[in-house]
Amino acid sequence: MRVVLLRSGSPGDPNPLLDALEAELRLAEVAVISLFPAEMDSSVSIPQADAAVLKDKTPAGLEWGRRLHEAGIPTVSPYPVTALCRDKLRTNHVLAQAGLPVPECRPVTGPEDLLPMLADGPVILKPRRGSRGRGIQIIHDTAEVPMSWGVEEMFAQRYYEPETLDRKIYRIGNDVFCVERVWPPVTLKEKQGRLIELDTPTRELAMECGRVLGTEIYGVDVIEHEGRPWIVDLSSFPGFKGVPDAGARIATVVLRVAAETRKDVSPPESASSSGTLCAAP
């Protein structure tokens, strides 16, 4: 069995999650091929593999994810889901169209686009392709509207003041964890947060996100405002900070996906029917 890990950065860069995942795969006697798209020419041939882990979500990483997907190699998370989630505005629209509680979102190209939303209350300005809280601004009135924000594509989301600490809900297969932490976190301890018990309705809400998008590995941020949960962000492959044994849990999913791939390519007389991990949205 062969598994590709698409890793960001350069060889030698530490990544505790992927290092733990790789160690678990090697314990299962899997041949692990670590690729660093930022360091590679796009003309490099795709290696033979039964599955790939699409953690690198840079343009180079997504290009490799697309090539693997088109070659019939399943990626975890699925390439179509990962590509969708790189555009946070599109992701919010997909979830909202499915009837999930997502605050109102609109594309904005300049300060004047924020004024209609501000008339009804505060908004939060976000990069469409942001991550880790980068570039986020909460705007309460016209005096706080930035005069410009460069060439980066942005969108505005209705801002609801959270009534609790941030809740980062992580799903790996059928396991769901909720990590509560301050925002923005600064120290490692703050980033790890603390595990809390998740109520059934919020757990079901998080699971529904995966059913809508077609994935079983992701993270979703949920806040509570006036007693109601709101989905404010979703990542196709977060860092899973604070989740116990995250690398081992992800390895279990990857091994299952790889095993299903091997069944699908078996000779007809010995093949058994098997669904893929996830459907494209």
Rank of each mutant, 00 (worst) to 15 (best):
14 P>R: 14
14 P>V: 10
14 P>L: 12
15 N>K: 13
15 N>C: 13
15 N>E: 14
16 P>E: 09
18 L>W: 10
19 D>F: 05
20 A>F: 09
23 A>R: 12
24 E>P: 05
25 L>H: 08
26 R>L: 07
27 L>K: 15
29 E>K: 15
31 A>Y: 02
33 I>G: 02
33 I>W: 05
34 S>H: 06
35 L>N: 02
35 L>R: 08
37 P>E: 06
39 E>I: 12
40 M>Y: 05
42 S>D: 12
43 S>P: 02
44 V>Y: 11
44 V>Q: 14
46 I>N: 01
46 I>D: 00
50 D>A: 10
50 D>V: 02
52 A>N: 00
54 L>G: 01
56 D>E: 12
59 P>C: 04
60 A>D: 12
62 L>V: 06
65 G>D: 03
66 R>D: 07
67 R>P: 01
67 R>M: 13
68 L>D: 02
71 A>L: 02
71 A>V: 03
71 A>R: 08
72 G>R: 08
73 I>K: 01
76 V>R: 00
76 V>N: 01
79 Y>N: 04
79 Y>D: 02
79 Y>F: 11
80 P>K: 09
80 P>I: 03
81 V>G: 01
82 T>H: 10
83 A>P: 05
84 L>I: 05
85 C>G: 05
86 R>P: 00
90 R>Q: 12
91 T>L: 14
92 N>V: 03
93 H>E: 15
94 V>G: 09
96 A>S: 15
99 G>S: 11
100 L>W: 11
101 P>E: 08
102 V>T: 10
104 E>G: 02
104 E>C: 07
105 C>K: 06
105 C>I: 06
105 C>G: 05
109 T>A: 15
111 P>I: 01
111 P>W: 03
112 E>V: 05
114 L>H: 00
114 L>T: 00
114 L>D: 00
115 L>S: 10
116 P>S: 12
116 P>F: 10
117 M>A: 14
118 L>T: 07
